[in-house]
Write a protein that binds this DNA or RNA. Structure first.
Lengths: 199, 199
DNA sequence: TACCTTTGTCTAACACTGTTAAATAATCTT
DNA sequence: AAGATTATTTAACAGTGTTAGACAAAGGTA
């Protein structure tokens, strides 16, 4: 009955092949070029077999989104572990977020809907909350007890996210100025908010 | 020869009809539902005549984008004129920007590529700079002369935009918390940056 | 080994998309 | 009224996501 295992392993393999092929296509030709038939071509099958592994195109995108959130969370965790003070950890995590956005540009576009020219996205992916809680907890740690209400931390969290995500969006849609200015804006903004957490 | 005028007027009318029909469809069914045939249906023609007015679908979107920037600029100008001090004017303009984003949600999505599920956008639309210079000039006015370099104003401008655009993006893609929190974050952030302009 | 069932895969099709060329209908000019 | 011009439509092409049905390969069973 070991052949069953081999079969299952093969099925799993083509499943990941589909995902990898999709990402490859997007990296080479952009989101608008991603089609079922092109994916099938790349994995040397015909289009309908993809539906044996994913119920439709959107399911592929959802899975890629999930993978993106997992990868992002792990990179932010890594960044956190390189520092000890909460302030330094917080900055490191946001910088990791920033780096991820550009290193995995296509995934970030998918996850946060920046300049997507495909597919809708209203999928409440559970793994979405991984990176969020990572930051949330660290903010909670820094805010003095007197102000440690859910609303207050939420506000601070969204302030962070707005600055970072806004800056990323702008950089992705327009091709912008120098890298230096952007990192400067980012660090300035982060520093300002981080300081504001303490009082 | 007045019939010529009538003809031209009619041509212009169906041109704007195409644009309005497009926007109507998007408002009712979202960007992904916008198709040439559906536009044609709404203006009671068949699809190919649209190509007499616009070279392709993208040209329609570009024109809508242009209209969006013009409308946004005029609303920001109005907001500015309701105040006298630069600080108040600056805040009013950003609040106008914010209000526009939600009042004309579909146009904003088109203009700034938030959660677009259609069409590519790399069109360097000239009217894009209208709202930008409006803000830019006001920042320049507030920054003390000693720091009034192009890079510095650019940095401040993008800091503003990041915060506002980021917050809008997040609100549009996720359906978020209470309106109060968002306006609070916005006003806090704006206030912080505005104050930072002076030193 | 022969059959039957299950599994994997493909072909063909449907309904839709943007876009174009050619045929028709309506209008204007002479 | 006839010819030229313009307006509009029909039909088609190539592409999209998706599904049903045909076919082939493999598995288990007698």
């Amino acid at each position: 009955m070991a052949s069953k295992d081999r079969i299952l392993r093969l099925k799993d393999e083509t499943r990941t092949n589909i995902l990898c092929a999709s990402l490859d296509i997007v990296k080479e030709e952009g989101w608008s070029a991603l089609s079922m038939r092109k994916i099938a071509d790349k994995i040397e099958y015909t289009a309908p077999i993809i539906y044996e592994y994913f119920s439709n195109k959107d399911a592929i995108l959802q899975e890629l989104t999930r993978m993106g959130y997992l990868k992002l969370a792990s990179q932010m965790e890594e960044a956190k572990d390189r520092f000890t003070t909460p302030a330094a950890q917080l900055e490191a995590m946001w910088l990791a977020y920033w780096n991820f956005a550009f290193a995995e540009k296509e995934l970030y576009q998918l996850m946060y809907g920046v300049e997507m020219n495909c597919c809708i996205m209203e999928n409440p992916c559970p793994d979405m909350k991984g990176p969020a809680t990572l930051i949330w907890n660290k903010i909670e740690e820094m805010v003095p007890e007197s102000k440690r209400t859910e609303d207050y931390i939420d506000t601070k969290y969204y302030t962070f996210w707005s600055v970072v995500h806004g800056l990323i969006s702008i950089n992705m849609t327009r091709q912008l100025s120098s890298e230096d200015i952007n990192k400067q804006v980012l660090k300035d903004a982060l520093g300002g908010i981080i300081n504001s957490l303490r009082n």
